[in-house]
Amino acid sequence: MEWITRLMEALGSPGAGLAVALENVFPPVPSEVILPLAGFTAGQGKISLLAAILWTTAGSVAGALVLYFLGAWLGLERLRRIAERVPFVSVSDVDKADAWFDRHGNAAVFVGRMVPVVRSLISIPAGVSGMPLGRFTLYTAAGSLVWNSALILAGYALGENYELIDRYLGWVSTAVLAALAIAIAWFVVSRLKARRS
């Protein structure tokens, strides 16, 4: 928190954008902390509210592009070769996931940018599936703009109580992680049962 505050004090709104870009790639501090703090800082008149929204959205897109290009580098064929060596995973699983992303990729990227935990990870399958860069950037920017605006405006409105946002959204992040853990456990158990039968 202190580092983010110093970053915004030193660089202004671009500092908030840089923090969000780093959070997308290395998420030790979630956007649920950075964005309300940016709103609170704007409320104190230290940075512009509009500039905070624009710079953090630009930072979100920049961070997402790093992971998109990581997914593009990984590629579908390489992912298939990896799947052949990973227990409980098959090449057909990769193909099904890719087909699903081809059908629902636009919505997945847009909505995924507003879901804790998923918001960073969604960029990788977009790159793997070869989603056109322009379309990926457009939906990432749109989803990020909604999410960033909501949290920055909430921090602006709550003032010194901006930390309440992280407290309540922390439950959402925990629920998402729990859902992912349950889905993985169900996947592994179902594959074990299939092998035994």
Rank of each mutant, 00 (worst) to 15 (best):
N106T: 13
F88Q: 13
A38N: 03
P14F: 01
G105D: 05
P87R: 03
W55N: 09
R103W: 12
F101P: 05
V33H: 03
L70P: 08
W100M: 10
W186I: 13
V117I: 15
A150V: 14
A72P: 04
E2S: 15
A154I: 12
W73C: 12
D102I: 07
F26M: 09
E160W: 11
L50V: 15
G63P: 02
V61E: 06
G45M: 03
S92M: 11
L138Q: 06
L37C: 06
P14E: 08
E9M: 11
I165Q: 06
P116N: 05
S31H: 00
L158A: 12
V176E: 03
A175Q: 00
P116M: 02
K193G: 00
F136Y: 13
A51F: 12
W73N: 08
G39H: 04
L138N: 03
D95P: 05
T137S: 15
V86A: 04
D166G: 14
L121R: 08
G12A: 06
A99Q: 14
S31W: 05
R195P: 00
Y156V: 10
L151Q: 08
L67T: 01
D93Q: 09
E84Y: 10
D95L: 09
R135H: 12
W100H: 10
F69T: 06
V117D: 11
G59E: 06
I184E: 13
L133K: 08
V20C: 09
V61H: 02
A150S: 10
P30W: 05
V94T: 11
A150G: 07
A64C: 03
S120N: 14
W73V: 11
V91R: 14
R167Y: 07
S129G: 04
A99S: 08
G45E: 02
Y156H: 15
V189R: 15
A62P: 04
G127R: 00
I122E: 00
V128M: 06
A72S: 13
L35N: 11
P14A: 05
M8Q: 09
P87T: 06
T174F: 15
T140A: 08
R119K: 02
T140I: 02
W147P: 01
I182T: 01
V111Q: 06
V109F: 02
E77Q: 13
G15S: 08
A64G: 07
V172R: 00
T137K: 10
L18H: 06
V33L: 14
G112Y: 06
R6S: 15
L138G: 00
G12E: 03
F187L: 09
L177H: 11
N148W: 11
P30N: 02
A42L: 00
Y156E: 07
A21S: 01
A142N: 03
P132H: 14
T56G: 02
M131D: 01
R6A: 15
W186G: 11
G127A: 05
V61L: 09
D98V: 15
W73T: 14
I34A: 05
S31N: 05
A175G: 07
N106E: 14
R113K: 14
P116A: 13
S120H: 13
V25R: 07
P28A: 12
M8L: 12
S173K: 07
I47A: 03
G127F: 09
L192R: 13
I4Y: 04
L67A: 07
A62M: 15
Y168D: 01
V111L: 15
A62Y: 08
A64Y: 04
A185W: 10
V89C: 13
